[in-house]
Design a protein around this nucleic acid. Structure first.
Lengths: 256, 256
DNA sequence: GATTCGAAAG
DNA sequence: CTTTCGAATC
């Protein structure tokens, strides 16, 4: 089973790029982020015709919006957190496919340190971690994936010295990310590529893609048991080089 | 010599459609309307590379904006009216090519009867007519062309009964247009196609193009001496059927 | 730099 | 329906 995550940054604009990539990569399950559209605008038909007839969508106008699409049934699906008050922002979609519990995430950006939005980012992560223990333990096959908006280690940023203490690479974000991993998750890509510096996001500005000034902020975080079954992790750089690309690229894992 | 008029409704959006059409139709001189861009955004280089190195541009942000581009030199060029106060709206470009005085027009729409904008439309026409006598008489080769925003006769609208008294087909507009012709201009297309009902503009709304619910509002108006030299008048419907078309089509005349 | 929205215009 | 703009967000 191939599972993917892809922050499309507007599904309206990126629909063809997504469909072309689905055709190429043939994932079985895909978590999508930043749909930037209401549920009723979700191109359910076109995506079903591409083979993904099982769809869990939590859309939102303008900002956020997540979905899980699958060739095989999605069980026990939920949108948002099940514990605590309803999150107004559409950032989480949950479901179980072939016995793997998948949490598709669009973690808050945080915008700026010492703002409400940064506080919301940390709170959101705390709630995500709490959510993991609802119905599963770290002995189960659990996958947390998506745009996590945190660059975890020195090889997840271009220049660690320049990034130190800044948004996406701040100690408070690292603590948060480490706590998530400490629950019992393994960074599937990094565990197989300990030293590589391959990013998943490049700003649209400053010719960042051509200068490879990016971040690795899109992750596949698997429990140990699940990680052992993963036979491949691929970051698909191709779609970033197309016309009118998303600023993120898709990431896939293959599960034996 | 082939002379064209084309209201592109945003040269930014229509640049490729324009270049493709120039390649196809090979006009020598083209009057463009609704550039919707400032002078500094005009794609002077791309248009020069297409063979039109002589350019007179009067751009404007958001609304209006006109240009005359030519393969051969444009003499005695002017933007706007030479008589009276400067018009704030970029609606007129003048120049002489191969002895033919050309006035490229984007006449005001008028928006609604009994508004300032409708009054401005009539005033603008009065000023245009006054302009004709500056340096020329009706015995010279003069061409008034462009988006005139008036449907002159019953065959210039789909249903004359429905259009009667409405904007674009109002008696005040017909009087104005008739006065312009009375100065000594002939509608080159209509003089050769007395009964045809072929439009130059179709609203983007209501599937108007497919239902042929259009207007003929883009004209080539020539003095009698010039009209006699015209060997062909063509309204190019093709570009309206492309993806992301202008709502207007180009019109050309061939001058012997 | 790219996206969304709503307003204004045609 | 299409376009432009300015504000907001990332």
């Amino acid at each position: 089973m191939r599972v993917a995550t892809f922050n499309v940054n507007s599904l309206r604009v990126r629909q063809q790029i997504l469909l072309d990539w689905l055709e190429e990569a043939q994932p079985d399950v895909v978590c999508l982020q930043e749909l930037k559209m209401k549920d009723e605008k979700f191109p359910a038909k076109a995506i079903a015709e591409a083979g993904y007839e099982h769809q869990v969508v939590w859309g939102q106008a303008t900002y956020n919006g997540v979905a899980m699409i699958s060739k095989t049934p999605i069980e026990n699906s939920h949108t948002g957190f099940r514990v605590g008050p309803k999150d107004k922002q559409a950032r989480l979609v949950q479901g179980t496919v072939n016995g793997v519990r998948i949490l598709g995430c669009y973690a808050p950006n945080g915008t700026k340190l010492s703002t409400d939005k940064f506080a919301y980012k940390l709170t959101w992560y705390a709630r995500l971690m709490r959510e993991l223990s609802v119905g599963t333990t770290n002995a189960d096959d659990v996958l947390v994936c998506g745009d996590m908006n945190i660059a975890h280690t020195a090889n997840d940023v271009k220049n660690p010295n320049e990034s130190a203490g800044r948004l996406h690479y701040h100690p408070l974000e690292h603590d948060t990310f480490n706590r998530l991993l400490a629950w019992g998750l393994v960074d599937a890509y990094r565990s197989r590529n300990p030293k590589s510096k391959d990013f998943t996001w490049w700003d649209y500005r400053m010719d960042a893609f051509n200068r490879d000034m990016g971040l690795r902020i899109d992750y596949m975080l698997a429990t140990e048991s699940l990680n052992k079954r993963i036979t491949d992790v691929t970051q698909w750089k191709g779609p970033r080089a197309l016309e009118k690309p998303s600023d993120h690229i898709p990431v896939t894992i293959d599960i034996a």
